[in-house]
Amino acid sequence: MTTFAASSWNFDVPGAPVEVLLFALFAALAIFGALRVVTASDPFVSALSLLFNFVSLGALYLMLGQAFVAISQILVYAGAVVVLFLFVIAYLGDRRELAADAVRARALRPFALLGVLALMVTLVAVVITADFPKLAELHDTAAGFGFGSPQAIGETFLGTYVLAFEVTSLVLLVAAIGGIVLGLTGRARHDRLRKLMQTRSADQQKRLHESEERKLKSERGVGTT
């Protein structure tokens, strides 16, 4: 393990409030982005505001010394998810909502707002009253050396949590197949799904052939005796 991993990925600036300023900046950006997603009447603006939220969360992950998760956040969310959303919004065309129509039926709106406010108050109250442990000193522990590096995460992921790894890959496969099936439309969907059902694998074909031959042989056997 190289030493640069621990030194360059640690964001401790001793005696300076830089970290506090950065946290305030990125927290404000994240909340601004999230609020804009919820309030914008144009889905395109919503999707672009989500980018603010994702990027500032990535910066916060970096401040927590977790470079690999931060990079994955930028690649997966900002790179793939937001682009996919923008593609779909562009494909569907302009579906701007009227400001009055953007929210649910008027009668239910106060209850939804009340529920959300209650949720926020409860969560924040729990966070304020809870006694969280202080941030562990990274240099003192064996785990702190190279904390957040791809190597360390890979060792945990493929060691302790190898089952979760396999299940996740299965979920991704199922989602990919689901995306293809949902993407087929009309006549193409009908034809291709039927073709998929009828297609036999090479192994299945071989077995079918063998069983037919056996059947023929036994019939011939019956005929001679």
């Binding site: 609020l35 997603v37 999707a47 779909v88 919004i89 929210v103 649910r104 709106r109 949720l119």
Partner: peptide, 19 residues
């Protein structure tokens, strides 16, 4: 916690499936 509540507000209040 605050971000989670904002997201919940979006799910409960908005009518557009994309949002």
């Amino acid at each position: 916690a605050v971000l989670f509540s904002i997201g919940a507000a979006g799910v409960l209040l908005r009518r557009n499936a994309l949002v």
